[in-house]
Design a protein around this nucleic acid. Structure first.
Length: 298
DNA sequence: CGCATTTGACCCGCGC
DNA sequence: GCGCGGGTCAAATGCG
C-alpha cells in the first residue's frame, strides 16, 4: 500500500460530531435575531457539507475495504499456488556479497507466519547503499511489538534464521541484527531486525529476497515456532505515520484466540476492524484529522 | 561434539 | 584519495 493511500485510508472511520451544541458554545447565541437567522442558515450549510464529507469518507472506507479484500484474496491464491510458480524468475542463490542480487517482486515472505501483514516497500533511505543502487529491488518490512526488556532481536515468523552479524548503526542506538534463512542452505533470503528508534518495544524486521523453498511446517523444527502464524494474524495495529503494519506479539488473549481456526473472511473482517480501531485510537491520526476538519470548517 | 551465536576485522560503495 | 558507515566474514565462544 502506498503511503498516500494509507493516509487516505487513515482519515476514515471517525464520526464527525460537530452539532448545534458546539456552535452555540462559540458565542453564537448572543447574536441579534437577524444575525442568528443568517448564522443558522450558514451553519446548516456547513453541517450538510460535513455530513456529505462524512458520507464520502464512509464510501472511501468501504471501497478501501473491498480493495483490501480483493488484494488479500490474491495473496491467498498466490500462497496456494505451486512452489515452482513462485520460484519462477527468482533470484539465484548467492553467497558472496558482490553477487548478491535482489530481484524485484511483489509478493514476498508470505508464509504461515506472517499472512498478509508483510508489505513490499521501496528501498528505504537508510537501507544498504548497495541495495539502493538497484532501483528495481524491493524489501518488505514488518513491525513486531515485543517486550522491550527482551534483548534478543528475534522475530518469530515461521522460518529458521541463522544470525550472522550484529551492528550498531548511526541513526539508531539499538543494535541491528542480520539473519540468513537457515532452513535451506541455498535460500537467498536475509532479514535485518532492529528496534524502532521511536519505540523500543517495536522490532522492525526487514526482509530481503524471496525464499526458494516451502515454509517449514510449524510443528517441525524448533518448538518456539509453534502457533506463530495465527498469533501474528490476530493482533495488529497501524502506525498512521508510516505504511508499515504493526504486529502485536504480547497480547496473551489474542494468542489464545488466534489458535482457533479462522476462515479467510473472518481474518479479513477481524483485520479491518483492528485497523479501523487502531487508527481511531491513534492520537497522531486524530490530531491530523482534527486539523483537516477545522481547516474545512473555518 | 556439533551447532548457533557473538564480535572484531574486513570489504565495499558513497560522499566530500 | 580518504573517511565513513552499512554489510559480511570467520574465529572464538557458549550451550545443549
Amino acid at each position: 500500500m502506498k503511503p498516500a493511500a494509507c493516509l487516505e485510508f487513515s482519515t476514515l472511520n471517525l464520526e464527525l460530531s460537530v452539532g448545534p451544541a458546539d456552535l452555540t458554545e462559540k458565542g453564537l447565541a448572543s447574536k441579534t435575531p437577524p444575525d442568528r437567522q443568517q448564522e443558522s442558515m450558514f451553519m446548516k450549510e456547513k453541517l450538510s457539507k460535513i455530513m456529505e464529507d462524512n458520507r464520502k469518507l464512509n464510501e472511501m472506507i468501504s471501497d478501501m475495504s473491498m480493495n483490501y479484500s480483493s488484494l488479500q484474496n490474491k495473496l491467498f491464491d498466490f500462497m496456494n499456488s505451486s512452489p515452482s510458480e513462485k520460484e519462477a524468475g527468482m533470484a539465484s542463490p548467492t553467497g558472496k556479497r558482490k553477487s548478491d542480487s535482489l530481484e524485484s517482486y511483489s509478493h514476498e515472505n508470505v508464509n504461515n507466519g506472517v499472512k498478509a501483514h508483510v508489505e513490499s516497500l521501496p528501498i528505504e533511505s537508510d537501507s544498504c547503499k548497495r541495495l539502493r543502487m538497484d532501483s528495481k529491488s524491493s524489501v518488505s518490512k514488518i513491525c513486531v511489538r515485543a517486550d522491550p526488556s527482551e534483548t534478543s532481536l528475534v522475530v518469530k515468523d515461521g522460518y529458521h534464521w541463522r544470525k550472522y552479524g550484529q551492528k550498531v548503526t548511526r541513526d539508531n542506538p539499538s543494535p541491528r541484527a542480520y539473519f540468513r534463512c537457515s532452513f535451506a542452505p541455498s535460500c537467498p533470503v536475509k532479514k535485518k531486525v532492529q528496534r524502532s528508534v521511536n519505540d523500543l518495544s517495536i522490532l522492525v524486521a526487514t526482509y530481503e529476497g524471496e525464499h526458494n523453498h516451502k515454509a517449514p511446517l510449524q510443528s517441525e523444527g524448533s518448538g518456539r515456532l509453534s502457533h506463530v502464524g495465527s498469533s501474528i494474524t490476530s493482533s495488529l495495529s497501524i502506525n498512521s505515520s508510516s505504511p508499515t503494519i504493526m504486529v502485536d506479539l504480547t497480547n496473551d488473549k489474542l494468542h489464545a484466540d488466534a489458535k482457533k481456526e479462522m476462515t479467510s473472511t473472518e481474518i479479513q473482517k477481524a483485520m479491518i476492524e483492528q485497523m479501523a480501531t487502531a487508527m481511531a485510537r491513534d492520537p497522531t491520526f486524530r490530531a491530523t484529522l482534527a486539523n483537516v476538519i477545522s481547516g474545512r470548517i473555518f
